[in-house]
Each structure stands twice: as C-alpha cells, then as structure tokens.
Nucleic acid binder design. Sequence first.
RNA 1: CGGGGCGUGGCGCAGCCCGGUAGCGCGCACGGUUUGGGUCCGUGAGGUCCCCGGUUCGAAUCCGGGCGCCCCGACCA
Length: 480
Amino acid sequence: MSEQAVTAQSEDFSRWYNEIVYRADLAAPSPVRGCVIIKPYGYEVWEGIKAGLDRRIKETGHQNAYFPLFIPESYIKREAEHVEGFSPELAVVTHAGGKALDEPLVVRPTSETVIGEAFSDWIQSYRDLPLLINQWANVVRWELRTRPFLRTAEFLWQEGHTAHATHDEAEEETLQMLDVYADCAVNDAAIPVIKGEKSRMERFAGAMRTYTIEAMMRDKRALQCGTSHNLGQNFAKAFDIRYLTEANTQEFCWTTSWGLTTRMVGAVVMTHGDDKGLRLPPKLAPYQVVIVPIYRRDAQRNAVLETVDRLREALTESGMRVHVDRREGQSPGFKFNDWEMRGVPLRMEVGPRDVENNKAVLARRDVMGRAGKQFVSQDGIIKAAQDLLADIQRSLLDDAREFRDAHIQNASSYAELREIVAAGDWARAYWAGSDEDEAAVKDETGATIRCFPFEQPNDRGQCVKSSQLAQKIALFAKAY
RNA sequence: CGGGGCGUGGCGCAGCCCGGUAGCGCGCACGGUUUGGGUCCGUGAGGUCCCCGGUUCGAAUCCGGGCGCCCCGACCA
C-alpha cells in the first residue's frame, strides 16, 4: 500500500476537496497566503474551459483586449456602490521605484473602472456602438477565507465589458452572455446550471441587475458559476461614457459586464468527483484516454509496447487526447487507482493476452468495476473509444442533473423552508420579502437567495417570510 | 477581527509533560523481485526541530517575546 485512499466525501467534503485538488495535481500551495499555484494538469482543465468560452465570446461578436493590472485609486471611488463593495478587499500599491507614489495604485479587483474610462474616449457617436470587449486577466481580491479555485486572493478570469445605445440592447447582451455561460457549463463542463436573477442584496456592486448561473455541488451546496451584469447607466455616468445620437443629442451609454473564473475548475471537481477522486468530463479532460501497458517479461514488453504505440497513434490521429503511462516502477493496479484519482474518463489496458487476441480493455471512469469494463477489438477501437467518451460526457451531465433535481424541494411555509435547508437541500419558495427579511433568512437558516430562476410557475403565491403576495419564486440554498 | 488548533527531512506525524547522539510511515535514488486492481526485499540520500532572546554543563523539549499557518464565524467569483 503505497498511497492512502482519499477521505470519503461523506466523511468530510472539504477535506475530500482539498485532498483531490492537491493529489490529482491540479494545484499546489503557494508561499503567499490565499494564493495557489495552478499546476499543468489543473491549468489544462482551465485552458479547456477557456478555449470553449473564448470561441463563444468571439462568435457572439466580441473582441479581446487587455487593460492594465494597476488602477488609479481614485477610479475605484467614482461609482459609489462599487467603492463600498470592493474597498475592503483591495490590494493597494503605495510604493514603486523606491519611493512613495503620488497616487496609490489598486491591483484590479475587476476592471469596470479602467475600461469605463477608456470607453469614454473610444465612444463618440452612436456609430461606435455597440462596443463589445472582453479581456482574459488575473484579478486580486483580498478575501479573508480562501479555498483553492473556489476563492483565492488572486484568480484568473475573463471579464466582458460592453456599451450600448439603449437599455434593451444592454439587457439583451447581458442575457445573451448568461446563455453563453450556461452553454459552457452544460455542454463542456457537464454541469447543469439554473439561470436566474440575483436579489438586490446579492447584486454586483454598482449593477442595476445581476444574472447568475447556479450549480449544485456534491455536498448540495450552491456555487455561483458565472455572472452577467446589466450596469444600467451607473458606470456610464461615473465615467462619462456618452454618445451622440442620430438626432445630434448627447446620451449616456448603457453598459454591461460579465465574468467567469477559475472557480469553474473547482465546480468541475465538486460536481463530478467521487470517493475515488476526480471525474473529468471528456471535453475538458487533459487526457481523455490513458493507456496502461501490462507485461511480465521483456519479451512481452516489446510486443505490448508496440501495440500500445500503434493504438495511441491511431487514437491521437482521430483527435483524442491520449497519454501512455510508461512508468516502470508502478504496478498496473497502482496506475489504475492513480488515473482514477486524476479523473481520466477512459482507461485502456493492453496486455499480452490482448496483443494475442487483437483486443484491448476499455474501462470507463464513471462506471466503476466490471460493469464499466469491456473487451474491444483493436480494429474498432477508435469508434468504441469515441462513443464511450461521448457517452461519459452525457452520463456525467445526467448524473449531476438527477442528483440536483432530487435535492430541490418546494417550500410553502417558512417552517418548511427551514426544514429543507436544515437537511441540506435547496428550497424553492415564493418571495416578496424586504432586504431585512432576506438577511433574517440568512441569519436563521444559513441559506441565501441564490436567484429568482427564469423558469417560473405561471402563478402567484404567498411570500414564505413576509406573507405578502409574491410574483416570483426564489431559490434558497447554502452557498460557497 | 472574534473563537479553537498547530509549527520537527518533500508530505503526514511521533518525540516535548519528566532537558542528555532527532525518530517513524509515505515519497525520493539505486539494485533485485513483481506486474490483468494500490508487489515485496535490501541499500541509500535528505533535517537552521518557525524566529529571537533567556535558564542550564547541555534545549526540539523549560521560560519570555515575536512570526507564520490551518479550522470555525463575519466578507466574497
């Protein structure tokens, strides 16, 4: 026994999460509190998310640009709610080049302010609109409690910033980008998400409306996976982003911003992982197929490795990401466990018997034991592997959706809501309460309003807290 | 910032109460053995015992001060 098994999810989910992150080689601790080193294996997962998202961002007409890491402190203070929201968690540079700076520089926590300032220069006329910009960057928020990927002092993300002539256009953009996020989550990460609008309390600092995609992790806690904000004219007014209309009048623009972060890597871990370790969706897996050669003696070794190389080449040529585990010191059993922990969707075993019979074993990560194992002819191996990968991608999504739906319940009274939340589930309930009511729910139950889902019943009901007539159902859950 | 815990080879820990040659497991290197579900044996490399000061013939251990980290809460993508 050379490696301990990981802590079971049911025993201690946080501990399980941390162990997986480090042992699957996604990340490593950093010398700076609250930061992590993203290791190649974890970074490749992020690159997969990034590639799919970047493609969609471009397909919807946006262009990438890059704005500076440092923001003059005065910029942050221009939009009242924005300052209030972000000042507690800013990192500020006060010295550079050996002397105190005239004006301190904030390390960006987000870029609405610098980009807003630039937009005010770039936009003169209605002909300059809409302006559709995205940037891939790192940002810093000095959070008090951090966890790898989920909340780190520095994180990587994409932040989109757009300016429009009308409210409706800005709203349409905001919702479009939320759809893009949902599409990435569902179709690439195999994470089912609920689209909805944030409550006033949970809204982005300075936004008119914030939309979100919310996902359920394996411990049933909610994770906000991406947000899209309609900023109204708040930032346009603070940064003087105006345009001349066709009728030659000055109008303020309507702006939006939207972001998705490396938190998504954590979401993948916590949505699909099991007691054996990670389960990566094939679309994001750095290695989709890992080949484990099995042999006893040198004579067998050559024959096996020859077959392995041939199969690897064939799979790679047909577009699959393949890794051959050539480590000499480890037994096949060790390797099986190792790759299961690292979440590789499909394992191929090639041993002397397979060489002889022109076969190979394919074992899927999402179905453990014999049930997930099959002997396949080498002649049809490409199709078999492709079909299995597609099926694994689908089944991870289905599993996650089934799990989630089994843990969302309707609450028709506050007592019911408390009970549901206490059991760890999510509660759907009519809501027309005030900010104070919302704060009280958080206080009394630990749950927050994750969103008002877009999907609503065609009905009205009584608010579980204020007893007022409510137009909408809200989703309550304990969140990360 | 409030409450709790911990700093000892890369990782996880023991030793500390009761001062006396710094230990164990894993990992790592080398040799052999094994290989279709976490092989086994041998040899070896690797340590400012968080830092500063004090007590003492002698401090990982006792005393004083500092620093750092982790967990729980408030803040948050």
